[in-house]
């Protein structure tokens, strides 16, 4: 307790208002204020404001870029879709063309087959005719030969004579 009262008495002696100190503290505070405003707070605030603007700009740019990118993506998507459709169409066309071609090839082949068959039949008929003709000629000759042979064998002198005379007669009559 003794300590405490001692302390209070000692410190109280510091108290009281000194005019000189008042002036000094106010003046030094104002000088400090002016100096700091020029050298510390001014530049700091400027920098912070600059950064704020910079960030705002960046955000704006980013937003713009985002919108652009979105648009580009959409465009790409649309293009992709149309390309896909076109591809689909081309494939379908190709399929149709292939089917058409198949059909036409088949038709052509059929036609060719029919034609070939026909000509072959004609050939066959012609050959047959030719063969028949040849056979006929052969048969005639053969029959003549056979007949000659038969006649040679069956005919006797008498008949031979008769025949010759007939023949001669016949020749004579013709003249």
């Amino acid at each position: 307790m003794q300590l405490l009262t001692d302390g209070l008495v000692i410190q109280a002696s510091i108290g009281g208002l000194q005019g000189g100190d008042m002036v000094f503290s106010i003046v030094s505070f104002l000088i400090l204020l002016a100096l700091l405003k020029k050298f510390a707070w001014g530049p700091l605030m400027n920098k912070m404001e600059e950064r704020e603007n910079h960030i705002a700009n960046e955000i704006e740019t980013a937003e713009k870029n985002r919108v652009e990118a979105e648009k580009a993506a959409q465009e790409a998507n649309e293009q992709l879709k149309s390309t896909r459709q076109e591809a689909q169409r081309i494939i379908e066309d190709a399929k149709k063309a292939a089917i058409d071609q198949e059909r036409s090839i088949m038709e052509a082949a059929n036609e060719a087959a029919v034609r070939i068959k026909k000509s072959a039949e004609e050939d066959i008929a012609r050959e047959k005719e030719k063969a028949v003709e040849a056979l006929q000629a052969q048969v005639a000759t053969l029959s003549v030969q056979i007949a000659t042979k038969v006649i040679e064998k069956e005919i006797n002198a008498e008949d031979q004579e008769q025949l010759i005379s007939d023949y001669i007669k016949e020749v004579g009559e013709e003249r």
């Binding site: 510091i14 000194q18 000189g20 100190d21 002036v23 000094f24 030094s28 505070f29 400090l32």
Partner: peptide, 16 residues
Amino acid sequence: WLDFNLSTTLMVFVSS
């Protein structure tokens, strides 16, 4: 009226 407590004067200056 121009009294100074020199320690106060000094300390104001130092902290400034």
